[in-house]
Computed example of a mutant assay.
Amino acid sequence: MEHQASSEPQHVSYRSGAAARLAGLSPETLRVWERRYNLSNTERSERGQRLYSAEQVRKLSLLKQLVDQGHAIGVLALMPDAQLQELANAAYTQPDAVGPIRIGVIGSNLAKRIAGSARDRADLVLEYSRSQLEQAAQDAPNASVEVLVIEQSELHDNAVSLIAGIKNRWGAVAVVVLYRFCASATIRALRAQDCLVARVPADVNELALLCRSALTGERLPPQPPSHLPDIRFDESALLTIMASGSGLACECPKHLADLLMMVGSFERYSAQCASRSADDAQLHSDLQRAAGQARAILEAAMEKLATAEGLPMPPTTRL
């Protein structure tokens, strides 16, 4: 049984594992939230386990919903329950932008992509185009533009003041900033200027969704995790390799297996680590992806080493 009745009739209390699952959280995230933000005044069982009421579980579920929308848990934890519910309700009453969106583009590559995707850009009307930020900073605003899209593949902090100046010059126009590589501090600085900041989308349809989000003032939806390489050596297979003999005079198989276990553990940790903000969530996603890529490189080396030395291979590995 994952729930336990208290001494009060009809009162059901849930242990932390069940409460986390019902709220859509991992147990690790719930523990971090409780430790950092003291979210709920939980009761304790005779054995000292936390017990959550149904109302507390509903609050945890509401917090999870709001964090997924991009709100910072550190801010949410300070809000009364009624304010949290109002914030959640606002997401369902936000008016949608309708009709084609008139955009201006700063960035030669993006303008070319839009021009070459006429069949896929029915939601976008290109009203203005410049290749450089400096050009746009000198131009008079185009009154027809609803959303100004700025593309900078390598977005550095020295562009923040220039983009802020362009945004102020263009007044109430919504601004979307796209990048491929950018520091978290630069992203935070641009978001503080009310810019919607995102990675360069794969196709023009995604750009239309970003522009519509900028128009309605919505936060970006949570990004689905990017595909990570499949695990070829689980911990059981690595422990088997570490216990096996090798013709090598050194202990390279053992050391490599140990490295793989550490990298794999960090990959899993990054996936479950609690985030205090949207930037934290993005950082942990980047760390998880980097660890997964490092794991794949080390696994390829382990496969080559195991093949050369006749070490035991996991059944699912195909050579």
Rank of each mutant, 00 (worst) to 15 (best):
S117N: 13
E299T: 06
P100R: 06
E303Y: 03
A20L: 03
A97V: 08
L84V: 07
A91L: 13
P314G: 10
T42G: 02
S131A: 15
A249P: 08
E206A: 15
L311H: 04
D280V: 01
Q272C: 08
A301H: 09
A290G: 08
A115K: 07
Q10L: 13
E8P: 00
K59D: 07
L305W: 07
V204S: 02
A198Y: 02
Y37L: 05
D286Q: 12
R289L: 15
D258P: 00
D157E: 08
R295V: 02
L87C: 10
D286W: 04
R188E: 15
I241S: 06
T316D: 13
P95L: 12
K254T: 14
Y14T: 04
D96E: 14
V175T: 13
E2M: 07
Q288C: 12
D230T: 08
L305P: 09
T186M: 10
A278H: 06
L220A: 10
G217R: 01
H3T: 10
A172P: 08
T42M: 12
S117E: 14
G247A: 13
S40H: 14
A172I: 04
T240C: 12
L25A: 07
L78W: 01
L220T: 01
V263G: 03
P95F: 10
Q49C: 02
K112W: 06
I106L: 11
A185K: 11
V75Y: 02
L287G: 03
S236Y: 08
L87G: 07
H227I: 12
G17E: 12
I241V: 15
Y179M: 09
A159N: 07
R121W: 01
E218Y: 04
V67W: 02
A257W: 04
L207A: 07
E8T: 14
D194Q: 15
Q282I: 03
A88M: 04
K304E: 15
V147N: 01
E218Q: 15
E146A: 11
R130V: 08
G292T: 01
L256Y: 05
V173F: 05
A214K: 02
L30R: 02
T93P: 05
A77H: 06
M262K: 13
A274Y: 00
P315T: 08
S53T: 12
V12H: 00
P80I: 09
F266N: 11
Q152A: 11
A72D: 12
H156K: 13
R212H: 06
L239H: 13
W33F: 05
S265C: 09
L76T: 03
Q138P: 00
P201N: 05
Y128D: 09
M79V: 01
A115E: 10
E235V: 11
A202K: 11
G264Q: 04
S244P: 10
G70C: 07
V204N: 02
A189E: 00
